[in-house]
Amino acid sequence: MKALVFNGPRDIRYEDFQDPERTIDNAVVMQVEKCSICGSDLHIYHGDHIGTTNYEADQHKFCVGHEFIGEVVEIGPDVHDLKVGDKVLAAGGTGCGTCSFCRTGQVWKCSRETAFGLSDEMNGGQAEFVQVPNADRTLMRIPDGVSDEQAVLLTDALATASFGINNTGLKPGQSLAVVGLGPIGLLGIELAFLRGASQVFAIDPFAARRAHAEKLGAVAFAPGKEAVGAILEASRGGVHCVFEASGASSAVRSTLPLVKKGGALSFIGLPQPDVALPLNHILYKGLTVRAGIAPVPNLWEPLIPLLQTGRLKAKGLFSHEMDLADGAEAYRIFDAREESVIKIMMNVT
């Protein structure tokens, strides 16, 4: 098969890769139809750290990507809820499927839980085919009324945005600042207004992303002291909650001045080892801080009706559509933030 394959930092190639064999009884093989690049994929692309893995060090080749939809083409004997021909979307990661946590819907607590496309332990879905373990819990048939674009967002970005906004504890009538206006931050703005936010402020260095945030109803600023001052004035001393959706050290540091005493900070961006928050500032402000990796399948149930009824739009985020064969260029454009890129959809079949 053809796939996007990690060959080292900034060296992702469209090349031949061994077809996946179904080696796990609770797995299926999917034929991928569409996939996309996530901001966290850039950590691999840059040779950064994710968890204990240093992608600058020597790595075996593996298929990248954890956001993908497609069709089930082969089923293992321990798969009970799916059939060949089902059109499905995949959660960005999964667990073993057999431990007590997986069996009770707490996959994120599984000791073997991992994301697709992080290593050759579980190859990713920026490929023509992919094996999906723990398929009954990792895959969902694409619901009626959900577009392919929305289905791709449900694999990670939309669920993660919902998780992050939930973690702020935002209540109707409260104010929120979103730091980092990639797809997750922009989706967070839409979700915050659905929760009844009275004011949403948005911070990002890229004008196109700020413009998108303003179309959603936020007041957007470029990073800097002027932005902090304007937000503090407009919110009368600070926002109730901050949703940080970048993971960059400058973005993480910017959250503390924005939030009022007794407020909340929510972090979902993957930080590098040198990113930290001063505990004394958190203590003296009496802040609640939450962070984590979204348990994606657990977020689907509340999100899908919002999409089906049109209350949640989740539209306009795919600024580019390309073929998988052009994946190396897609990574370059996405990394360079060229052409006002927000998110790139790649067609596989």
Rank of each mutant, 00 (worst) to 15 (best):
N54H: 15
E56Y: 06
D58V: 13
Q59R: 14
H60Y: 11
F62D: 14
F62Y: 14
G65S: 12
E67Q: 10
G70V: 13
E71R: 13
E71C: 13
V72C: 09
V72W: 08
V72A: 08
E74G: 12
I75C: 12
G76H: 09
P77V: 11
D78F: 05
V79D: 08
H80C: 00
V84L: 13
V84F: 13
G85A: 04
D86N: 15
D86S: 03
D86V: 01
K87C: 02
L89P: 00
A90D: 05
G92I: 11
G93Y: 13
G93A: 10
T94S: 10
G95S: 04
G95K: 07
G95P: 00
G97H: 02
T98P: 02
T98Q: 14
S100F: 10
S100T: 09
F101E: 13
C102E: 07
T104N: 12
Q106I: 00
V107K: 01
K109N: 15
C110T: 02
R112L: 08
T114P: 00
A115V: 03
A115M: 11
A115T: 04
F116T: 09
F116Y: 15
G117E: 06
L118A: 03
L118V: 07
S119N: 02
D120I: 06
D120S: 15
E121G: 00
N123D: 06
N123Y: 04
Q126C: 07
A127T: 09
A127M: 05
V130F: 11
V132E: 11
V132T: 05
P133Y: 01
P133C: 00
A135V: 03
A135W: 04
D136T: 01
R137L: 02
L139F: 06
M140D: 03
M140S: 03
M140E: 01
